[in-house]
Design a protein around this nucleic acid. Sequence first.
RNA 1: CGGGGUAUAGCUCAGCCUGGUAGAGCGCGUCGUUCGGGACGACGAGGUCGCAGGUUCAAGUCCUGCUACCCCGACCA
Length: 569
Amino acid sequence: MKASAYHLSTTRETPADAEIASHQLMIRSGMIRKLTAGIYTWSPLGLRVLRKVEDIVREEMNRAGYLEMLMPAVQPAELWQESGRWELFGGQLLKIRDRAGRDYCFGPTHEEVMTDFVRNEIRSYKQLPVTFYQIQTKFRDEIRPRFGVMRAREFLMKDAYSFHIDQASLEQTFWEMHGVYSRIFERSGLRFRAVEADSGAIGGNRSIEFHVLADSGEDQIAFSTGSDYAANVELCRLAPPDGERPAPAEELRTVDTPGVRTIDELVTQFDIPVERTVKTLLVQGDEGLVALLVRGDHELNPAKAEKLPGVASPLTFADDAAIRAAAGAGPGSLGPVGLDLPLVVDHAVAVMADFAAGANQDDQHLFGINFGRDLPEPQAADLRNACNGDPSPDGQGTLELARGIEVGHIFQLGTKYSESMNAVVLGEDGKSHVMPMGCYGIGVSRIVAAAIEQNHDEHGIVWPAPLAPFTLALLPMNAKKSPRVQEATEALYRDLLAAGVEVLCDDRNLRPGVMFNDMELIGIPHRVVVGERGLDAGTLEYRARGAEANEELPLDGAVAAILEKIGRA
RNA sequence: CGGGGUAUAGCUCAGCCUGGUAGAGCGCGUCGUUCGGGACGACGAGGUCGCAGGUUCAAGUCCUGCUACCCCGACCA
């Protein structure tokens, strides 16, 4: 491709509304342009990358024998009413109406359409198992789209659905898909982890997320140093700590703590270890409020809390007025002693002695609190998020935390949709069987953003080779004035194209610095410079993106030398 | 959807408090000098100041309403 005939549109300035590196770089390199909130146009340059991802996904899915198809983006309301999701999906579902007043939605996912297709097409167990997939634009009316295509309302997704005669077959495909996904992310050149996203409590259903590791990721994942165990922090189970609760050693006493509102302030002003403080959180229960206790340095895990019997789901924190009415003090001075509410404590709190908490009096705290003396024996549960250094739930090693961007999710759905939509098949026994089902998603457009998030430096994007829009940038120095440079560049360009190299030849007649900066911003992995100096010496100049220094390549046999550099030899 | 903010040239923003000729930098066009890490000069194009009302002799500036976008919270590929 000649740059003069390609729509390159880079900017020096960072757009004001882009917060994270990948969003800024996608805008600055000209890959995407915002049309409206959460909706983006992909430029020719951006689309090249998107297609690279798509191609890898498609190749690996096909290799595994899964069947590509294409379902409609616009779906009739009836199907969604049948599955019960027309209401359940809530505001995220973009509903539309045609001129006759019929209701439709723009598909946010395709379980309904897929299940409808399969119930009409598949009659016999002999046709099972089968897995269909598509790569298609989805729309989810996110409450808060952000970070460019990372969390867009319209996005490109690969969604796959498998159908089975029994659970065993579903599990086989599920783990096979696990392998396919791993290969897809490996081939894309991304550092990733597969993490458990469900406790496995509900009827053998399992769900595994694939996360690209990046500090700016919105999810926290925990993984064991001593085993393969990895889980989303939200769902990472924590066992009660070993060891007995120490006997009380201190008297219960009330301390004036003027102005202290947070655990931090309590710890620094009164010189007590944070491990001997307790946070008291009031949430809505089925009847009135419920008090939840976690250690001062721990964080309440909402997903775990809302699953407790007696606690309302979704988890709702009490507002200041309700807190004051129930406890007689503001949120900064809450504590369990003398609080007339149902109480659930985290396992880590249950083994504490002589700890500090609010006194339910503004500007006062209690020190030296003990269970069994100042409070009844606690009802303990797993309530908090995992921390660095917690023992791994599988008993091997300790947990480490990392941030991740969820780019894939595989799920054993079971019969949730096949049952409500009556997707049945005749079994070997001659009877009808409801088909267990799996569903498997990859955020194709999100992968592009995640790859940048994981691979960039102060100059711009540093594409993993498999995703790069072009493999090589060919840069002539001062070509306008030098017919030799022009001719040598043109000849090399033709030879590289003939050798099948995706080369971007910058014939825009710009100053060298501008070309270097543009090509680095765009993130092209390899660059070759043609200049008078080199031609005199019979050399070309080569540099890999991210490398510190130039190398010289012989002008004679340049194509072979370049192929070796780009790993195509 | 709750809370906070912004809206002026293609982009980043000043001007608004204290009403009186529409501004800068970058980008874009032409010409010249330059040309190995985002050059310099000259000239030039480009704006219903988000929209609708109101106050005023006069509104980008003051008032009211609306809309869009951004940020902070619960969902997800």
